[in-house]
């Protein structure tokens, strides 16, 4: 498989099920894209994020967002600098000493981390997040590039009962990968049994923080290799056909969707390359298009998102037939 198998194993060791989220987390680390995981409380969202972050031996920043979150809490301390200056005394009686006061931010938190876990991002007021998400997007603060590789955000479903305001759609767009998780027990999948068995055996209760199983060099090398993965004309044509279908058949437009050029024409190529690399290939194949459904979760209307595997299947068959 890939060089990230140890990390995948580590995730398996700590969290039962949620295979899609695990793969998507690895994909985020390879492609250096941000990921947003939404699900009801108690579905191991934060745990998954934490294990992935700690397991990769990167500078780690964890922040629990809340209603009053301010920028300063995320980016470091606000520092007031005071400097003595001499005034020229142009106006009568004003010669003498003066102080120049300058407010700046001493970088910390998100600005110095390589991987960030932003827990409960939907609890922060949508608008306060604007600058944070811009930093995530541009990976720079002011003129300074920041070392951040990926941010993993979690959130609760945007229903009324969770008392949070929906994230601004433009803000959600900063997270290239978006997944929805549901509880194992609630959805009645087989893994629910495994989960209960594991707790019955008492092996999960006192788990220490995971030790790193991969490192920055490995991730850097993978990121380099990602750019060598070939994206052929057939895959590009298929991708465009899928997007065309979303726009023309499912009527995705600016008001009901976030079908942005940045995400689906630029980042999608990276995600496809990463998916191929995770599968151990150096060429993107048509089945890799399945990774697109990790990008559409909150970007297109639910019916279009659900139809995506079908659309991809149909488009792939047409392309293969040609």
């Amino acid at each position: 498989m890939s060089d990230l198998t140890p990390l995948h194993d580590l995730l398996d060791h700590h969290v039962v099920g949620h295979d899609e989220v695990k793969t998507a987390l690895l994909l985020a680390l390879i492609t250096r894209e941000h990921i947003y995981v939404e699900g009801p409380p108690g579905t191991a969202k934060t745990r998954l994020a934490e294990v992935a972050a700690r397991g990769s031996d990167l500078d780690f920043f964890f922040y629990q967002l809340h209603r009053d979150t301010r920028l300063a809490e995320l980016v470091g301390d606000i520092v007031l600098e005071r400097r003595k200056v001499q005034t020229d005394g142009a106006a009568p009686g004003t010669a003498g000493e003066a102080e120049r006061i300058h407010q700046r931010i001493e970088p910390g938190g998100l600005l110095t981390a390589e991987i960030a876990v932003l827990d409960d991002i939907s609890r922060a007021p949508g608008e306060a997040l604007n600058v944070l998400l811009r930093i995530l997007n541009e990976r720079r603060f002011g003129a300074e590039p920041i070392p951040l590789m990926a941010a993993i955000a979690t959130g609760n479903p945007m229903d009324d009962e969770y008392y949070n305001e929906p994230l601004d759609p433009a803000n959600l767009d900063r997270f290239a990968l978006q997944l929805r998780v549901s509880g194992l027990i609630q959805s009645g999948v087989d893994e629910a049994k495994t989960l209960i068995d594991r707790f019955a055996a008492g092996s999960v209760v006192e788990q220490p923080d995971p030790a790193p199983v991969t490192d920055r060099a490995t991730l850097d090398a993978l990121n380099q290799r990602m750019y060598e993965v070939e994206v052929g004309a057939a895959v590009r044509a298929a991708l465009l056909d899928v997007l065309r279908t979303l726009v023309l058949e499912f009527e995705c437009n600016e008001t009901n969707s976030l079908l942005t050029d940045r995400t689906f024409l630029v980042k999608a190529i990276k995600i496809l390359r990463g998916a191929a690399l995770l599968a151990g290939r150096d060429t993107v194949d048509l089945p890799d298009l399945a990774a697109l459904s990790w990008m559409t979760t909150f970007r297109v209307p639910p019916e279009a998102h659900e139809a995506l595997p079908r659309i991809i299947g149909r488009v792939s068959r047409q392309i293969q037939a040609v």
Binding site: E228, E254, D261, L265
Partner: peptide, 30 residues
């Protein structure tokens, strides 16, 4: 947007550009 504006030919050009992109800036992660 190219996609939402239905400019698929232009979108194809952009995709091709992206697919040709190599990581020319190793280490310039920013």
């Amino acid at each position: 947007g190219l996609l939402t504006g239905g400019l698929f030919d232009e979108a194809a050009v952009l995709l091709e550009r992206e697919a040709a992109r190599e990581s020319s800036r190793a280490g310039v992660r920013a």
